[in-house]
């Protein structure tokens, strides 16, 4: 019997800390990490600062489900710490492990473009920290900064188009 933990691990002083207090060190970390993720590499320093405000930090324990194939999805996750396994569920109650994603990898980006069901199941392979970027927050951000929205969606479309090209190539190879 698999155990499904709550998943949310409260950070120390998370609630009682002063929400207005800013830590320079923390901002630097955000910047270097986010600008290393392909989707955000075209953004300016100021745009990344804006983006980090809407990122949700989620903690997952080992074997905890991030999402299941077919679930409605509203955002992408970036692996900050730890790793996650990607599975493809089939109708005959089997599932194939496709790959493992590590620090800096991201998944679920298509649900930022349209609300299609998740195409794979993601399980946390170890104690992991994922950074989530969700469509509702992003839409709010675009209201105040359409330029950021344009850059982000343009980069996202490039990535999706590249994946489509690779998929076409592999399909041609199979045929």
């Amino acid at each position: 019997m698999q155990h499904y933990p709550v998943g949310y691990i409260m950070e120390k002083n998370y609630f009682w800390s002063n929400p207005l207090k800013k830590s320079g060190h923390e901002n630097e970390n955000y910047f270097f990490f986010l600008s290393s993720v392909p989707i955000f590499d075209s953004l300016t320093r100021r745009q990344i600062d804006k983006l980090q405000r809407i990122i949700h930090i989620r903690n997952f324990s080992k074997d905890e489900i991030v999402f299941r194939q077919g679930d409605p999805g509203v955002g992408l996750y970036i692996v900050k710490d730890g790793s996650v396994d990607v599975y493809n569920e089939l109708n005959d109650m089997t599932c194939h492990k496709i790959t493992t994603l590590n620090h800096g990898d991201f998944f679920g980006e298509t649900s930022l473009l349209n609300e299609t069901p998740r195409s794979a199941t993601i399980i946390s392979a170890e104690q992991s920290v994922l950074w989530g970027l969700f469509k509702p927050d992003l839409l709010n951000l675009f209201d105040s900064d359409p330029k950021l929205g344009l850059r982000l969606i343009f980069r996202l479309s490039q990535i999706v188009a590249e994946r489509l090209r690779l998929l076409n190539n592999s399909l041609c190879g199979i045929q």
Partner: peptide, 14 residues
């Protein structure tokens, strides 16, 4: 869906 633990995991690329 059935619980994920009931699935048989195959560790090869489909």
């Amino acid at each position: 869906k059935s619980e994920f633990s009931k699935y048989k995991i195959i560790t090869t690329n489909p």
